[in-house]
Design a protein around this nucleic acid. Structure first.
Lengths: 219, 219
DNA sequence: ACGACTTTGTGAAGTAATGCACGAAGTCGG
DNA sequence: CCGACTTCGTGCATTACTTCACAAAGTCGT
């Protein structure tokens, strides 16, 4: 195989859709359906059927023409592609409202992640527990990360601390960061960062809402 | 309606960056800087400078060559574009961990939104308070929405209830929905929906993490 | 075993977004 | 008032992504 040395290059947009497909497939499996067409999967995922087929084709042809895709088989493959064959330990830094909610949120555990540590700098919080997990101090991050083999860090601190926390995470060997703080963080290339900003999402909605109203008023 | 009466068509990608620029500008204003170059703004927002200039050019030329952009003026214009001149009342439906955290989260109030109502169906929650706001029943949504002039709804329910909640919201006249439930919801066109799925973000990170490790191992 | 039907996989066309590169418009020191 | 310098605004080439459309590959009833 020519492409053997490189893993085949998968478009970012496709990667971002894989988890969505995965969830749709898991729902489908729960309904005891053995196969699924690209059409149906597209509907569940809210995308176009051709896109589904092209996305899936990037990692081989798993479908059967005239039938569709084997649901379980596809789940397995996508899980493997996403590295969800084992649970990944994560650390959440910042135990404010959002951090606490994330710590309690069951949705991670279900989907391939374990919250392996909760961290803050506030000494009044350190030592207290959220659920079964107790809060530790940021200064102990290096030990925590290496002992529990953590590769993913979640930043749920205020904006002001985000960059410093990110730097510390990277120094400790964390390679993937999910940033909820409303600020850009810069890390060296080779570290993956994704940013989720709740207020930004609302503001985007607000833009279209405003537009709609001007159109309504005009039309 | 002819195209001329439309405000100029602004690319989606640009719209999604406006809130990020806005935040960067507000930080800049807080440092008492009167002007900012596209270069600097780009750095703060984590994008390319040409992109900043092109984005800003979609709603007119506010910059001064040789100097840059007037920070306050730009803040004003972006806020206006985003419809953030007044606070928009929002309702949060679903008072689980995430919903409660969102209710307490100060980040919305700061950025143009007011949490005007908290809603759930669980009768043991209805009537109790989170912060200053007390939880009301989903069945009263219509009244709540119309009396408080709410146009934005946040769904923080489990996946199974999301579609029904969305339908109810639309029926009550809500036109913008932010969906945290891990499922697609379908609404008629003309309603804006944005989806934030925390587990999906982690799974995307996991993909790149996995890739990196295979590359490291191979290289 | 065949023909009608379904559904995949993909080349190619179309669309959207990006980033370069440079002219235009301004500032500022002397 | 001029020339050096900064920075914007934008046309254009490039890249990334999407969607169409259809041949190929399979199923299924008879």
């Amino acid at each position: 195989m020519a492409a053997a040395s490189h893993p085949r290059e998968i478009p970012e947009a496709t990667v971002a859709r894989l988890p969505v497909y995965l969830r749709a497939l898991q729902d489908t499996a729960a309904q005891k359906l053995a196969t699924i067409s690209s059409e149906r999967l597209a509907e569940l995922a809210g995308v176009n059927a051709a896109k589904v087929r092209k996305d899936l084709s990037y990692f081989g042809s798993y479908g059967t023409r005239g039938v569709g895709y084997d649901v379980e088989y596809l789940i397995l493959h996508i899980r493997r592609e996403l590295g969800l064959t084992h649970d990944s330990p994560t650390v959440i830094v910042g135990m404010g409202n959002l951090g606490q909610a994330l710590a309690k949120y069951g949705g991670f555990q279900d989907r391939g992640f374990v919250v392996a540590a909760l961290v803050d700098t506030d000494s009044s919080k350190v030592g207290t527990a959220i659920g079964l997990q107790s809060i530790e101090h940021l200064d102990d991050l290096a030990t925590i990360v290496s002992e529990r083999d953590i590769s993913i860090g979640v930043i749920a601190t205020p904006a002001g601390s985000a960059q410093e926390v990110a730097d510390r995470m990277v120094a400790c060997g964390i390679t993937s960061i999910l940033n909820f703080a409303p600020t850009m963080i810069s890390v060296d290339p080779g570290i993956s960062v994704r940013k989720v900003d709740l207020a930004v999402e609302l503001q985007i909605l607000s833009f279209y809402n405003e537009r709609r109203q001007s159109l309504d008023a005009a039309g």
